[in-house]
Amino acid sequence: MRVLYFAWVRDRVGTGEETVEPPQDVATVADLMAWLAGRGPGHAAAFADPGRVRCALDQDYATADAPLGTAREVAFFPPVTGG
């Protein structure tokens, strides 16, 4: 699974992209955030307050309880501030 990070989430994780293979019991977006938070101090800082992080599965917005399903590209980022 390809995981992308943007804005301050990327700053904290320390990379914009990585490929991960989470275990079978990581079933939802919330599960994945909790699992990623265990990968290191940068990840832990990025996901310290999961309520502040938004997610997209294959480039569509997804809520924390959404199943990961067959998503190949998962992105984490702060609430958007364009326009």
Binding site: F6, A7, A56, Y61, A75, F77, P78, V80, T81, G82, G83
Partner: peptide, 12 residues
């Protein structure tokens, strides 16, 4: 513009 501000994935 209202929807773009809350849905388009841009960060300033």
């Amino acid at each position: 513009i209202d929807w773009l501000k809350t849905r388009a994935p841009f960060w300033k």
